[in-house]
């Protein structure tokens, strides 16, 4: 089986064409980035604001626990079977594209919200008090003190979400949706295990690369690289 997988990967013809590894890989990256973007646009402002005013902590922290208990596959299955969004083609996102984007964005929200909320919440009270003492308005406190100090942990949440969305995007294939997972499910459905394993190798490698790139970018972008950095509060539910 491993030899079959190797042969599949080495055959250039398997990488190009409509159902080739490369276009499916690009499609899954597009889906991942879009879904993460949606989750950031919705989740970040909400979580940062909740953290700033110090409300809704129960919700922000427990959203992760709820997210963990709901299987991504189950949500995807419900969305594609429902009348809307169903399995309709959605531009470059392919069959069941909209359903996939919605499910992925929903599962990217918990790590983003929880980490961003905790990050702002746990900014040292001394720093906030000093900012207030200097006469900063609420917005100035947030933008100049809380946000810079919270940035590393917020970034951790985004990185966790990125890797998780990539993993979840693979599951779309279980409902005949878009992305690289299709190579895996097709291979297994047709007892072409070499193909299935080859797809799995590519999916796993890209996941590792995303994780690596994410942590390098995060380290480079951290203004306080040498300072002791708080660790992530949540472990995302993997998919």
């Amino acid at each position: 089986m491993l030899a079959d997988a190797w042969a599949y990967l080495l055959d250039g013809a398997n990488w190009v064409g409509d159902e080739g590894l490369l276009p499916l890989l690009l499609q899954q990256l597009l889906i991942t980035v879009t879904a993460l973007g949606i989750a950031l646009v919705i989740g970040l402002p909400l979580a940062l604001w909740l953290g700033h005013v110090g409300r809704g902590g129960f919700l922000a922290v427990n959203v992760s626990n709820v997210g963990r208990a709901i299987p991504t596959f189950a949500l995807l299955a419900l969305l594609v079977t429902a009348a809307w969004p169903g399995t309709a083609y959605f531009g470059p996102y392919g069959r069941a594209g909209l359903a996939t984007l919605l499910a992925l964005a929903a599962f990217a929200l918990p790590p983003v919200i929880t980490n961003a909320y905790v990050a702002v919440r746990e900014v040292a009270p001394d720093a906030k008090e000093a900012a207030r003492g200097m006469g900063m308005s609420g917005w100035q406190q947030f933008a100049r003190v809380e946000l810079p100090l919270a940035m590393p942990l917020v970034a951790t949440g985004v990185r966790l979400a990125l890797v998780q969305v990539w993993a979840t995007a693979t599951l779309a294939a279980l409902v005949a949706g878009p992305g690289l997972g299709r190579v895996i499910t097709d291979g297994f459905a047709n007892t072409d295990y070499g193909k299935g394993i080859a797809g799995a190798v590519v999916v796993a490698l890209v996941a590792l690369v995303l994780e690596l790139v994410g942590s390098v970018v995060q380290r480079r972008a951290d203004p306080m690289r040498v300072a002791v950095r708080p660790t992530a509060k949540v472990q995302p539910a993997t998919s």
């Binding site: 089986m1 890797v163 993993a167 297994f188 797809g199 799995a200 796993a204 590792l208």
Partner: peptide, 17 residues
């Protein structure tokens, strides 16, 4: 942690051999 990064739909096929 590295193992955790691998999507489940990819980990199962990798164990199948």
């Amino acid at each position: 942690t590295t193992l955790y990064t691998i999507p489940s739909l990819a980990l199962f096929p990798l164990l199948v051999p």
